[in-house]
Computed example of a mutant assay.
Amino acid sequence: MSLQSLFQRLCGGFNRNCQKLAVLASTAVPGLALADLPALEEPTQGSGGIRSTAQGYMYDGFVLGGLLLCTAAFIWVGIGCLASFNEGRQRGEWTKFGVTAFIGVVLILVIIWLSTEAAPILAQ
């Protein structure tokens, strides 16, 4: 056994023992295990009472749901356009791709417009 491998074995065991000792100390003394966590963010709408805070969190949830709907529509339209593009490349007929792309862009614009119109209505 070389001196270097013996040193590595001793240091590896020392590091593992130090880690075990730190975990044991943090569980034995509860003050050491507490992390300094950030405070919970207030909702964007309403704060004060329980009801207005809950309504604020619901508003934020609905706005997030609208964003997720826009994202899903964007991905869905993109997949459809790629499929029709591939089909147009194989057959040489590009009308289906053009119609799919046009309707997809209109669909995305309508969903984004409806989401932005819904946000102020939800804030009331």
Results as ranks from 00 to 15, higher is better:
residue 61 G to C: 08
residue 15 N to D: 09
residue 58 M to E: 11
residue 7 F to D: 12
residue 113 W to N: 03
residue 93 E to Q: 14
residue 31 G to D: 12
residue 57 Y to G: 00
residue 10 L to W: 12
residue 42 E to K: 15
residue 35 A to D: 11
residue 73 A to R: 04
residue 4 Q to I: 13
residue 88 G to C: 02
residue 85 F to M: 03
residue 84 S to N: 03
residue 29 V to H: 04
residue 23 V to D: 13
residue 2 S to R: 10
residue 101 A to S: 13
residue 68 L to T: 06
residue 45 Q to L: 15
residue 38 P to A: 05
residue 27 T to Y: 08
residue 74 F to L: 10
residue 107 L to I: 05
residue 59 Y to N: 11
residue 19 Q to R: 15
residue 33 A to S: 14
residue 104 G to T: 01
residue 111 I to S: 02
residue 55 Q to Y: 06
residue 39 A to N: 10
residue 58 M to S: 12
residue 71 T to Q: 12
residue 66 G to E: 06
residue 3 L to S: 08
residue 79 I to Y: 07
residue 75 I to E: 07
residue 9 R to K: 09
residue 12 G to S: 06
residue 14 F to M: 15
residue 79 I to Q: 04
residue 69 L to Y: 03
residue 66 G to I: 01
residue 58 M to H: 11
residue 116 T to G: 05
residue 116 T to K: 10
residue 18 C to V: 14
residue 14 F to Y: 15
residue 32 L to A: 08
residue 115 S to I: 02
residue 31 G to F: 01
residue 38 P to M: 03
residue 20 K to N: 12
residue 119 A to M: 15
residue 109 L to F: 08
residue 18 C to A: 12
residue 49 G to V: 04
residue 80 G to V: 01
residue 50 I to K: 08
residue 15 N to F: 14
residue 41 E to G: 05
residue 119 A to Q: 15
residue 109 L to Y: 07
residue 80 G to W: 03
residue 110 V to W: 09
residue 58 M to K: 10
residue 13 G to I: 01
residue 91 R to F: 13
residue 44 T to H: 13
residue 24 L to C: 09
residue 124 Q to M: 14
residue 2 S to V: 06
residue 64 L to A: 14
residue 5 S to W: 05
residue 62 F to T: 05
residue 106 V to P: 03
residue 122 L to S: 06
residue 46 G to E: 01
residue 8 Q to I: 11
residue 15 N to I: 15
residue 61 G to H: 05
residue 112 I to F: 12
residue 56 G to F: 07
residue 32 L to P: 04
residue 115 S to D: 09
residue 60 D to R: 08
residue 109 L to D: 04
residue 58 M to P: 00
residue 90 Q to K: 14
residue 38 P to L: 12
residue 53 T to W: 00
residue 66 G to S: 04
residue 84 S to M: 02
residue 99 V to A: 04
residue 77 V to M: 01
residue 21 L to G: 02
residue 68 L to G: 04
residue 72 A to G: 01
residue 8 Q to Y: 12
residue 3 L to Q: 08
residue 109 L to W: 02
residue 26 S to H: 13
residue 10 L to I: 14
residue 115 S to G: 02
residue 23 V to H: 13
residue 4 Q to C: 07
residue 76 W to Y: 01
residue 86 N to R: 03
residue 52 S to P: 00
residue 115 S to L: 04
residue 38 P to W: 09
residue 35 A to W: 02
residue 64 L to F: 10
residue 79 I to C: 02
residue 85 F to G: 00
residue 112 I to V: 15
residue 38 P to V: 11
residue 70 C to D: 08
residue 7 F to R: 13
residue 25 A to S: 14
residue 89 R to C: 13
residue 28 A to D: 10
residue 27 T to E: 13
residue 75 I to L: 06
residue 116 T to C: 15
residue 55 Q to D: 05
residue 98 G to D: 11
residue 79 I to F: 08
residue 114 L to V: 13
residue 12 G to D: 09
residue 77 V to R: 00
residue 97 F to L: 08
residue 119 A to V: 15
residue 12 G to R: 07
residue 87 E to I: 01
residue 25 A to V: 14
residue 77 V to I: 06
residue 1 M to Y: 07
